[in-house]
């Protein structure tokens, strides 16, 4: 039980580190949002649930923490991505597709 929990915490910490590394290395805001959202949410889930596996009496509260992380983190990152698009942050030069032009609410945000 102890070893399995430690392996889970290790996977989570590795993903947290990779997400932070992506925050530094990726070229623009939208790519950084990919690293900062998916990677760190997954890593945080695994680390918290790993702690719940190591100490089985803590499992329900750890599950509650991970549930709240899973609820709140995507909302704030969605709001940040929308704010970046609305406030006119340009895309990276090498990006190939921009689907947001198809939607009317994002159509004329370039001149803001």
């Amino acid at each position: 039980m102890h070893i399995a929990g430690m392996i889970a915490i290790g996977i989570g910490v590795l993903f947290l580190f990779l997400g932070s590394f992506g925050i530094v290395r990726l070229p623009d805001v939208y790519n950084r949002l990919q690293a900062g959202t998916k990677c760190t949410t997954f890593g945080c889930l695994f680390a918290v649930l790993g702690v719940g596996i190591v100490e089985p009496a803590w499992f329900w509260k750890a599950l509650l923490v991970s549930l709240f992380v899973l609820l709140t983190n995507p909302i704030s990152n969605h709001a940040l991505g929308r704010a970046a698009k609305k406030s006119g942050v340009p895309l990276w030069d090498g990006s190939v597709v921009d689907k947001s032009r198809d939607f009317p609410s994002y159509a004329n945000t370039e001149k803001l």
Binding site: L16, G19, V29, C44, V65, L80, A83, V89
Partner: peptide, 18 residues
């Protein structure tokens, strides 16, 4: 930009919870 910094802050909060 300010959005980059906000994304970095959001990542720090998730890392801090773990």
């Amino acid at each position: 930009t300010a959005t980059d910094r906000a994304v970095a802050l959001d990542t720090v909060t998730t890392v801090t919870t773990a």
